[in-house]
Design a protein around this nucleic acid. Structure first.
Length: 481
RNA sequence: GCCAAGGUGGCAGAAUGGUUAAUGCGACGGACUGCAGAUCCGUUUCCUGGGGGUUCGAUUCCCUCCCUUGGCUCCA
């Protein structure tokens, strides 16, 4: 199979990817806690791992992609309490909105979204194992992980434990033996959702759901674990400690992948700074393709800076040019069908297309370098724009050849998004034809004022008109562009 | 303070131990156009944070300093 290099954040190096049981690949990505609207930083992470799954599937792997949903935690309880809503219902609601955004962004590779509260028996069982193995201890109705019992704790993040870190102040929590110990099971508080357990009524801590879910669904060891860089410590550190101690197997995952943060004007988005850019609204404004293009226009591990009023318009310009040949070819094929008659391409062009597709696979196999892939595709845009034969003269087969690098992109990058709408309606097309015919006559009699008036009017209706050579082309564009 | 990831042209953002350091956006000039747009051609001069070191050669490897971002038990 293809040689795939993936950067593993635990070993801090790029390594050859070899699945535990090929062609199967287990992929787990930390999902989110749906206590509020998703922002564009969340979007980046999930588009990243969508592309990872798409690429691996293209290369013949059978990827089982699991992404958990923390549908109960402190924030949900707090928010629910403030709104007078059941936290579980609140989570449900935000989850629905969030998957809606994901769908629009073309994130479709997740196989299963397990909810934390559907895995309480697994969670309790795992905690029990940890208690039995003396990796965890109960204290006043809660259960804590005894970090001192797991020497590898801190290897992923390079963090030292509190004990090794003199001079830091930590507010001690009742019952904890050491400040770095984390809660596995939280004793119930009146009015909050709770489950029965050997330690009394309570609910799961934050970290435990992931390992209870992955041990159940992906096994004690699996191939890939993804998430935002901000989860590296303590969350992923805790996952390793929990799973490896509970199963006795190591390593929990072969490759840790962390997506870089999306910064807003150089600083992290956060509620307290009031600089959160909402995902759904951004998709509305810029269009899902442009946002997805923006994300993939940087390497997934690099920090990416988002500047309002600049980043997306810029990405929009680039995407427009990048996808223009695709749109023109697709329109012709849609109109005439794949069997349309016309000229074939010279051998050299066919070979060039094939070669490009292999190079695309190559750059993607190098730690999913989407930016490099996009750059290569821009080279194809140039090739197409200097092609001696106009698209209109080509056969359906020839057009498919020209589209083949874009087909690769549809499959792997998820761009352009396969259109969900049917395109302009026949009714609209007819009225545009009438308007353009009027404009043509106006131009014929050199009445350019009238011709431009018609063009401006169409533009206001979102119809972009271009005179290319002797013919006039038009297409629908988003009003904001 | 500790840990981690980064610092590349006007901006965004790749790559590489070695001839001219991608690609995009923007700007400028030209071709085409009634104009615009799109496209093409050209320009945007000696762009890899500072300083050391290794090397025939470093932007790439090592050390150090500075700066930015993230994490240090809420984080995608």
């Amino acid at each position: 199979m293809r040689r795939i290099q993936i950067y593993d954040t635990l070993s801090r190096e790029s390594r050859l990817f070899v699945p535990i049981t090929p062609p199967k690949v287990g992929l787990f990505v930390c999902g989110l806690t749906p206590y509020d609207e998703a922002h564009i930083g969340h979007g980046r992470t999930f588009v990243t791992f969508d592309v990872v799954a798409r690429a691996l599937r293209r290369w013949g792997y059978r990827v089982f992609y699991v992404q958990n949903v923390t549908n109960l935690d402190d924030r949900l309880i707090q928010r629910g309490g403030a709104e007078g809503t059941d936290p579980l219902l609140l989570a449900e609601r935000h989850f629905a909105a969030w998957t809606g955004s994901m769908e629009r962004l073309g994130v479709r590779s997740v196989n299963y979204y397990p909810f934390a509260t559907d895995y309480v028996p697994e969670i309790v069982a795992q905690i029990q194992k940890l208690v039995e193995g003396s990796f965890a201890y109960p204290a006043s109705g809660s259960v804590y992980y005894d970090v001192a019992r797991f020497p590898a704790y801190g290897r992923l993040s390079g963090q030292k434990t509190e004990a090794q870190r003199p001079g830091t102040r930590v507010t001690p929590e009742a019952g904890k033996r050491a400040p770095e110990d984390f809660v596995l099971w939280k004793a119930a508080t009146p009015g909050e959702p709770w489950w029965e357990s050997p330690w009394g009524p309570g609910r799961p801590g934050w970290h435990i759901e992931d390992t209870a879910i992955t041990v159940r669904l992906l096994g004690a060891r699996y191939d890939l674990h993804g998430g935002g860089l901000d989860l590296k410590f303590p969350h992923h550190e805790a996952e390793i400690a929990q799973a490896e101690a509970a199963t006795g197997e190591s390593p929990l995952v072969n490759f840790w992948m962390h997506a870089g943060m999306l910064n807003l004007r150089g600083e992290k988005m956060s509620k307290s700074l009031g600089n959160v850019v909402r995902l759904a609204a951004t998709i509305d404004e810029a269009g899902p393709e442009v946002l997805r293009f923006f994300y993939l226009n940087a390497h997934y591990r690099s920090p990416l800076d988002f500047v309002e009023g600049k980043s997306l318009p810029e990405a929009g310009e680039a995407f427009e040019r990048w996808s223009a040949p695709y749109r023109r070819l697709t329109a012709l094929l849609t109109r005439d069908g794949p069997d349309r008659e016309g000229a074939e391409l010279p051998e050299s062009t066919v070979a060039e297309a094939d070669d490009l597709v292999s190079r695309l696979d190559e750059v993607m196999a190098n730690d999913f370098n989407t930016r490099e892939a996009i750059a290569l595709l821009f080279g194809w845009v140039r090739t197409l724009s200097v092609l001696p034969q106009p698209f209109e003269t080509l056969s359906g087969t020839a057009m498919e050849t020209l589209l083949s690098p874009y087909r690769w992109s549809e499959q792997v990058l998820g761009l352009p998004l396969i259109a969900t709408g049917a395109g302009p309606s026949e009714e609209l097309a007819a009225s545009v034809r009438v308007a353009l015919e009027a404009r043509r006559r106006a131009r014929e009699r050199n009445d350019f004022a009238e011709a431009d008036r018609i063009r401006d009017e169409l533009k206001a209706a979102g119809i972009h008109v271009e005179d290319r050579g002797g013919t006039t082309h038009w297409e629908l564009r988003r009003a904001s562009e």
